[in-house]
């Protein structure tokens, strides 16, 4: 197993290099290069910024040296200072925002897992039944509905009309003065809508994947054989089919990381959640190049980690992979 993980880790190295190369090129191919972008934004401090940017990107150095430095900075997650008026370190800004985004993503992934798998299995077993049709339409509705619109509708219903849930933000004002249990409850209430929404949006991918896997497995000979042996259908489904259908689903979890991160821009803006998606959007609107690059690279890292974990998880569950 360790050997598998080591090999898998080795495989990520070319990807990391690729990510660094691509982002390096992106910065340098931006019209006029990094300096012009910086100078355009801060006419007041043009000279100073120019100097700082030259130093930061080592623009007086040959190109391979510059790339070497960029690689070094990426490895230490040093993306320089934000162009935003506050001029703080990009890495610091990302660090204070990332836990929120990750929490919501992990929770919604868990929710997707919990709902999509039974849904997919049952849909496959009862293929073309009314249940199958309704669940198909439901999961696709989750994918198809514009997030910000549904978010507002839910806020109106649960926040304004019923008054059950807070509208936006992460904690209420009194959060710090609450007892521990109260704190947890307060946080949970704030997370309900965003997590529900992110989960609803991601349901389709997972449940459809589960359904088609399951269909494929059910058609296989050994299932037919099991049925022929006279096993009850339920047993067949659960003992034999599910395990085999479930395995590939683990990998799709890793693949869904970039989509969830992308979606974060929308629901963090509408729910006023100070996460990485909102930060990225602000960076984009103010053309904050260091911040944009920093978040893109971190986003790519997270995807890599997601894929890695998924593959390792897959290997843990399926010995054949390890051996191969």
């Amino acid at each position: 197993m360790l050997r598998y993980v080591a090999r898998r880790l080795l495989l990520t190295i070319p990807l990391l290099v690729g990510i660094s190369l691509l982002s390096f090129l992106a910065i340098h191919m931006a019209p006029g290069g990094p300096i012009s972008v910086a100078a355009d934004l801060n006419p007041k401090a043009t000279a100073e910024y120019r100097e700082r940017m030259v130093r930061y990107y080592g623009l007086d150095q040959p190109i391979h040296v510059q790339y070497g430095r960029w690689l070094g900075r990426m490895a230490t997650l040093d993306f320089g200072e934000s162009f935003a008026p506050d001029g703080r370190q990009v890495s610091e800004k990302i660090r204070e925002r990332i836990p929120v985004t990750l929490t919501i993503n992990i929770l919604s992934m868990g929710l997707i897992f919990l709902v999509a798998i039974p849904l997919g299995i049952y849909s496959a077993v009862r293929k073309d039944s009314w249940f199958d049709r309704i669940s198909t339409v439901t999961v696709f509705t989750g994918f198809a509905v514009p997030t910000f619109w549904l978010a507002l509708l839910l806020m109106i219903l649960f926040g304004v009309k019923l008054g059950w849930l807070p509208i936006s933000g992460l904690v209420s004002l009194e959060h710090d003065s609450l007892p521990l249990a109260g704190k947890a409850w307060d946080r949970a209430r704030h997370l309900v809508l965003p997590v529900l929404l992110a989960g609803f949006g991601g349901l389709a991918g997972m449940s459809r994947y589960m359904r088609s896997n399951m269909l494929e497995v059910i058609r296989q000979d050994y299932i037919a054989a099991a049925k022929a042996k006279g096993l009850v259908e339920r047993q067949v489904v659960f003992r034999h089919a599910m395990r085999n259908a479930l395995l590939p689903v683990i990998t799709i979890l890793g693949l869904s990381v970039p989509d969830l991160l992308g979606g974060a821009v929308i629901f963090e803006t509408i729910f006023a959640i100070p996460g990485m998606g909102q930060l990225f959007y602000q960076g984009v609107m103010s053309r904050d190049v260091p911040l944009i690059m920093g978040i893109l690279v971190i986003g790519a890292f997270l995807t890599l980690i997601g894929n890695l974990l998924a593959d390792v998880g897959y290997a843990l569950a399926d010995p054949r992979i390890r051996a191969g």
Partner: peptide
Amino acid sequence: RVIPDQATMFLELKSGG
């Protein structure tokens, strides 16, 4: 409180946030 979206802010007002 920083609330980027105007529609969200109005709902926050009405709900007492």
